[in-house]
Design a protein around this nucleic acid. Sequence first.
DNA 1: ATCCTTGCAAATTGTTTGCAGCTAG
DNA 2: CTAGCTGCAAACAATTTGCAAGGAT
Lengths: 159, 159
Amino acid sequence: MTHTFEQWCGDLEDLLARNQQRLTPQRRVIAEVLFGQDGHVNVDELHQLVRAKDGSVGYATVYRTLKLLEDHDLVHTNTFVDGTARYEIAAHDDEHHDHLVCKDCGHITEFENHDIERLQEEVATKLGFELVDHAMVLYGRCGRDPCPHRDARTKRRRG
Amino acid sequence: MTHTFEQWCGDLEDLLARNQQRLTPQRRVIAEVLFGQDGHVNVDELHQLVRAKDGSVGYATVYRTLKLLEDHDLVHTNTFVDGTARYEIAAHDDEHHDHLVCKDCGHITEFENHDIERLQEEVATKLGFELVDHAMVLYGRCGRDPCPHRDARTKRRRG
DNA sequence: ATCCTTGCAAATTGTTTGCAGCTAG
DNA sequence: CTAGCTGCAAACAATTTGCAAGGAT
């Protein structure tokens, strides 16, 4: 990755300041946990991790902070399989990844594919749209028994 | 499309019979409305349309029937933008389409792209998975003002 | 002082479930 | 009769919101 948490946090602070908003301790902790995570945490998990660092942070604040970060495009929301949203720090540069979810164990693998992205652009253009975003999730099965991802926690391949 | 509603309904009836289940009037009406729709209705809309034909059908029955149809792969669920699920009759043959949602008005355009699908297979294979399903939604803006899709109801290009 | 922010609890929303009555075989 | 099926209302789960108190500028 190209940013350290401190760099990223500074950017966030500036961004907030520009809107008369503040980087409160709570927001900082939430961002920190999110940044440290491999991504794909849901609110419950996030809240628990946050409370481990600061026991006073409320559920609502987690939600509000996530929304705040999302509004500033610093966090990306994904709703994979169950109805519950999962969050990850948005790509810092222009990189973008998509997800493959294991139907057997729910393990999430990330991947990049520029050919697909190019075709998506092409499709949108052909239909008269400017592509502004996309969501793509592949669902697969590894076919091995036991599933090698079982009990594996989401691991993020970075840098 | 390759099936008329009656054909499709016959298949459904057989399918249900095989599981000691019945094609009740309520289920028939729900299926009929769904079949006649251009797709992408949410439960609320569907329920209203159904009640126009049979005022006694309850909300729960709509949900239960949708789940039933989905379990039999006759209906496909999509959760586009808001948290609410939208439903459409599943592809009758091997055709499959994806969606492009207009960020301005929510209008849903369908498209097919076999190149993308091939690449998705490729990605999954390369990662050691058998691709069993995928969800892909493109979000776009047409850039024209007023948005030509505004107030347009979802239109499905069929046969 | 002003206004952003917070934690809590209550409210909302989308969906599921328990149950008594109904219906088809 | 014995299932499956229905409508209703209550239950649930995820998320949002109102509000009084706290904190920064």
